[in-house]
Amino acid sequence: MTKRVTKRRLETNERLLDAAEQAFAEHGFHGVSISDLCARAGYTSGAFYSNYASKDELFLALFTRRSEIVLKQLGEAVDQAVVSEHPIATLIESASVVDEETRTWFLISTEFTLYAIRHPEAAEALARHDAAIRAAVAELIAPLLATAPSKVTEADLDMLVRFVVAVREGGLAQSLVEPTVLPHGELERRFLPALFEGLS
């Protein structure tokens, strides 16, 4: 039987997610126990297990919550880009902003990715989530690609999104390590416009 979602249950879930995000960023995915999370959120372990079966499941809920925020921001950036004189450059500039939330999420997601690589079940679950996000991103950027004739087929679009994500995440890792050498978004600004021009 499906559990009824009450206001109290939603609040409990949000507090657990907030506590997990802070704890994972500070101590790492492995450095935080379920009892640590519950103590930080002000709940017993019963509250945790009434919402999640494991830390893996909790992380994927965090992933979903963060993805919704990022997709909303991307949608707004695309809306601005399609009406600008230089759509691709405008989108890249908007997407290159790195704030403390971006840094925090990068720490959490990178560590969980390493965990997933070592654990097949976690990898399968993360891959499903990643695929859903790529599909959403592809749908959002479709109007941008439509501003000029494009060689990108529907089958290619998923691979294109994979490539852009790889540049974004790889560049972010390097710029967080060497912020004075590689400013945030520099790789994207230098190379992605040429990529999209070559596809049109």
Rank of each mutant, 00 (worst) to 15 (best):
S35V: 14
F24G: 10
V83L: 08
E14W: 11
K151S: 07
A122Q: 13
P179H: 11
G28W: 04
T2F: 15
G42T: 00
R103G: 08
D36F: 02
R9W: 00
K3A: 07
L187N: 13
V165K: 14
L187C: 11
K72Y: 10
W105I: 04
A39S: 11
P120T: 02
F191Y: 05
S45L: 14
L192K: 00
I34N: 07
A166Q: 10
D156S: 01
G75C: 04
A125W: 03
I88M: 07
L16I: 02
A81I: 02
A127C: 11
E111V: 10
L126Y: 03
E111I: 08
A125V: 04
S35N: 13
S54A: 11
P183D: 09
N51Y: 09
A47Q: 12
D36E: 06
G185P: 14
I117C: 07
R134E: 06
A138E: 00
L192M: 00
S45W: 04
D156Y: 01
G198Q: 04
L16Q: 09
A127S: 14
S150K: 03
E14P: 01
M1V: 07
P193Y: 00
K72A: 06
S175L: 05
F106H: 02
V137N: 14
Y49H: 09
K3E: 09
L145G: 07
D56K: 00
H184T: 06
Q174H: 08
I92W: 11
A155E: 13
L37Q: 00
F163L: 11
V83M: 11
Y115G: 11
G171T: 08
E100T: 08
Y43A: 12
E154A: 12
E101D: 14
S67F: 10
A123C: 05
G198N: 06
L17F: 07
K151A: 12
K151V: 15
S50H: 11
V167G: 13
Q174E: 03
E178Q: 09
W105E: 07
L126T: 00
F106D: 01
P183H: 07
R8I: 09
A123F: 03
L107T: 02
S109L: 10
R118Q: 15
L187E: 14
A132R: 15
E76G: 08
T12N: 09
T110S: 03
S175A: 15
E197P: 02
F48K: 10
E26M: 13
V161N: 02
V82G: 01
S45D: 12
Y43N: 13
A173T: 09
A81G: 06
E85L: 06
A19T: 14
A41D: 11
G46A: 05
M1W: 06
A95H: 10
L71K: 01
F29Y: 12
V5R: 00
I141L: 13
Y115N: 11
Q22S: 10
R9H: 03
L107S: 03
